[in-house]
Design a protein around this nucleic acid. Structure first.
Lengths: 132, 132
DNA sequence: TGTTAATCCGATCAAATTGGTCGTATAAAT
DNA sequence: ATTTATACGACCAATTTGATCGGATTAACA
């Protein structure tokens, strides 16, 4: 429980890798995958998600790859997680529609407390802090 | 990702239920399971784990059940999670033995940062706060 | 302009984790 | 003794996650 997924891990590794290069240098999926021994296809998918989320720019064709687009200090971890993994498990109760019993719902507020605490923690943590 | 498990949820529901009774009142698994519509067997397992962990007392036989034993304000959430779920996912890197590549290991420190932050947050959160 | 090397993207399979069930043993109140 | 509850290990089912595959698209470069 409370584990980060590989995709999140790979995304952070990739960002950190790109951060250590010149601002406009391009890193290919293959290059990153080989250097850190990450399955190429899964890393590719992760980078695509980040490209779609506006975190990196994709450059197609040979000599293509990715480079950082967004200011990483402006992206908090909740946004980051959601771009990569979609809606978070820790938000489940908010959308739980089969929560019909009022008593059961009230009693579930401990879980809400935990989720709220986690949420505010990740909202105050930026991708920039984590990768630097 | 980052989801709490059902067992943790059921444990908190049960504790909260017992907290709303007189200090020495006994709650049976069946009573709790029916009131909150929780699978009896799974709830039983969870209560057994809490009994083994010294959080509640088990009273056997007919008219038996459980009552709170420990001071809930003295148990932090890390301890609580570990009693119920065993070693946490968020500690994985510490024990990761196949982490041979130094470069890969260094690059993984972002995950360590996140884990450390989560850890200290849960260390400073007690079961008492959450269930009350 | 055709070849090549990269990203893109959906579908799908495999593995791990979690949720839930079953059967039986054991303990204690009546 | 009988009944009713917890105790506990083994097991199956469902969900989530990790990884793979096949093919389409894009663009550099000879």
């Amino acid at each position: 429980m409370l584990k980060l997924t590989r995709k999140v891990e790979y995304a952070l590794i990739a960002l950190r890798h790109m951060q250590n290069k010149e601002p406009d240098a391009i890193s290919s999926t293959k290059e990153i995958s080989e250097m850190y021994d990450i399955p190429l296809e899964l890393l590719a998918k992760t980078l695509q998600l980040m490209a779609r989320g506006g975190i990196v720019n994709a450059v197609q064709g040979p000599t293509g790859g990715y480079k950082i687009k967004a200011k990483l200090e402006n992206i908090n971890m909740i946004e980051f997680f959601e771009k990569i993994e979609g809606p978070l498990g820790l938000m489940d109760c908010y959308f739980d529609s089969d929560c019909t019993l009022i008593s059961a719902c009230n009693i579930r507020s401990p879980i809400k407390k935990i989720n709220d605490n986690m949420r505010s923690m990740f909202e105050n943590m930026t991708v920039g802090e984590i990768t630097q």
